[in-house]
Simulated scan of single mutants.
Amino acid sequence: MKEVLTQINGIPIRENFVENLPYNPKLKPLINGKRKAGILSEVIFWKQVRAKSFHNIDFDRQRIIGNYIVDFYIKNLGLVIEIDGWSHCTKEDYDEIRQKYLESLGLKIFRVTDFDVKNNLGVVMKSLEDFIVENYAY
C-alpha cells in the first residue's frame, strides 16, 4: 500500500513515486540558463509552490526526464507540471510526442497556460488541487 503524501481539503493523497526515470546528463548545462532566463509565469508559479508551501508537496524546477527538461516535477506523485507559453502554439506535434513519451514512463502531466498563471493564478492553483485529487486520492 502506498504512503499518504499529504491531504488536500481533507482528502488523503497517495504517493506515486516513479522509479528509474531516464536522465540525459548532456541537458544539465541548459537548466541554469533556463532558470536564469526567469520566465515570468514560471517564477510566479515557483513562488506559489517552493519550499513545500503548496500542501507540503516538494516540487522540483527544471527537471531532466529522458531527453526533455520539464518545467516542474513532483517526484512523490510522478507528476509533471508544464506551463505553455506562446511558443507552444507552433510546437503542437513536438508537445504531443513529448507528452506521449512522458506518459509512457508512467507520469501524469498537468498543463496550464502562461496567460492563466499570470492572470488567473488562484484558478490555476485550484485546478492543480483538483487534478491531484482526481488522480492521486485514496
Score class of each variant (00 low, 15 high):
residue 52 K to Y: 03
residue 32 N to H: 07
residue 25 P to I: 05
residue 44 I to Y: 06
residue 73 Y to L: 01
residue 13 I to W: 12
residue 103 E to W: 04
residue 22 P to L: 10
residue 37 A to G: 09
residue 84 D to M: 04
residue 42 E to H: 01
residue 126 K to I: 01
residue 39 I to S: 12
residue 71 D to P: 01
residue 90 T to H: 11
residue 25 P to F: 04
residue 36 K to Y: 11
residue 118 K to D: 09
residue 96 E to A: 09
residue 111 R to V: 03
residue 109 I to C: 06
residue 106 G to D: 06
residue 1 M to F: 04
residue 102 L to R: 13
residue 98 R to T: 06
residue 43 V to R: 12
residue 115 F to C: 00
residue 36 K to W: 07
residue 71 D to A: 04
residue 98 R to Q: 11
residue 99 Q to V: 07
residue 44 I to D: 03
residue 137 A to D: 06
residue 88 H to K: 12
residue 58 D to Q: 15
residue 44 I to S: 05
residue 99 Q to A: 14
residue 129 E to K: 08
residue 13 I to N: 12
residue 62 Q to W: 01
residue 63 R to Q: 06
residue 125 M to Q: 14
residue 91 K to H: 09
residue 120 N to R: 10
residue 104 S to I: 06
residue 120 N to M: 10
residue 50 R to C: 06
residue 39 I to W: 06
residue 107 L to V: 08
residue 117 V to D: 08
residue 115 F to I: 00
residue 94 Y to A: 07
residue 93 D to A: 14
residue 90 T to A: 10
residue 14 R to L: 12
residue 117 V to M: 09
residue 94 Y to E: 15
residue 132 I to Y: 01
residue 97 I to P: 03
residue 75 K to R: 15
residue 133 V to E: 12
residue 26 K to V: 08
residue 63 R to A: 03
residue 64 I to E: 07
residue 54 F to T: 13
residue 86 W to L: 13
residue 124 V to Q: 03
residue 75 K to Y: 11
residue 119 N to G: 04
residue 31 I to Y: 01
residue 52 K to G: 00
residue 110 F to S: 07
residue 131 F to G: 09
residue 45 F to Y: 05
residue 108 K to H: 09
residue 83 I to H: 04
residue 60 D to F: 06
residue 14 R to K: 15
residue 126 K to V: 00
residue 12 P to M: 07
residue 100 K to L: 15
residue 123 V to R: 09
residue 30 L to H: 09
residue 116 D to N: 12
residue 94 Y to N: 13
residue 20 N to H: 11
residue 97 I to F: 13
residue 103 E to S: 11
residue 85 G to S: 09
residue 92 E to W: 06
residue 13 I to H: 13
residue 97 I to A: 14
residue 24 N to Q: 11
residue 42 E to N: 02
residue 136 Y to R: 14
residue 43 V to I: 12
residue 69 I to Y: 06
residue 38 G to F: 02
residue 64 I to A: 08
residue 113 T to V: 00
residue 136 Y to S: 09
residue 49 V to R: 02
residue 125 M to I: 07
residue 8 I to R: 13
residue 15 E to R: 15
residue 109 I to D: 10
residue 33 G to P: 00
residue 14 R to C: 07
residue 47 K to A: 10
residue 72 F to T: 02
residue 1 M to D: 12
residue 109 I to V: 13
residue 129 E to T: 08
residue 61 R to S: 03
residue 122 G to T: 10
residue 65 I to K: 02
residue 7 Q to H: 14
residue 66 G to Y: 07
residue 103 E to T: 14
residue 39 I to G: 05
residue 132 I to W: 02
residue 37 A to Y: 11
residue 52 K to D: 05
residue 38 G to S: 11
residue 17 F to E: 08
residue 96 E to M: 07
residue 98 R to Y: 02
